[in-house]
Amino acid sequence: MIAFRAVAAMGERVRGRALVAKDGFSARYDLDRVKGVFSRPEHRLAGQSYVDRILVLDAAKGGVATAWMLHEMTTRGVMPAALVLNRVNPIMVQGAAFAAFTMISGFAVDITALVPNGALVEVDPSDPPCLRILATP
């Protein structure tokens, strides 16, 4: 098992399959929230379902709408299991706080380069927060 410590996290401990890309995340810009897929054609995960996946991405992008949208997605159950980001902006943190959503960020390494796509991972927001790779595909 490999573990990576992070600077900050919130939410519950969750396990799931990782969906990984060196790209950003914005609920407004990147997602078709009805179908539960990445919809921006330029996104490296375009066309792929994010539902119940632990998204491992580079940085929070885009505008302020994600703060409401994470909550809206959560109530419909068409949502990722958690967000793992190298860097966050306030919107992503505010959205996760409002939706009681699990998120972790701030690694000493580029986390998108070290987590294999499809790996079984665990996000542990307890102190100190960390991301564990439990099994690789």
């Binding site: 505008g63 302020v64 409401w68 909550h71 809206e72």
Partner: peptide, 12 residues
């Protein structure tokens, strides 16, 4: 406050 209803959804 940014709060269009496409973002809020029914839940918001």
């Amino acid at each position: 406050v940014m709060a269009d209803t496409e973002s809020l959804g029914l839940a918001g």
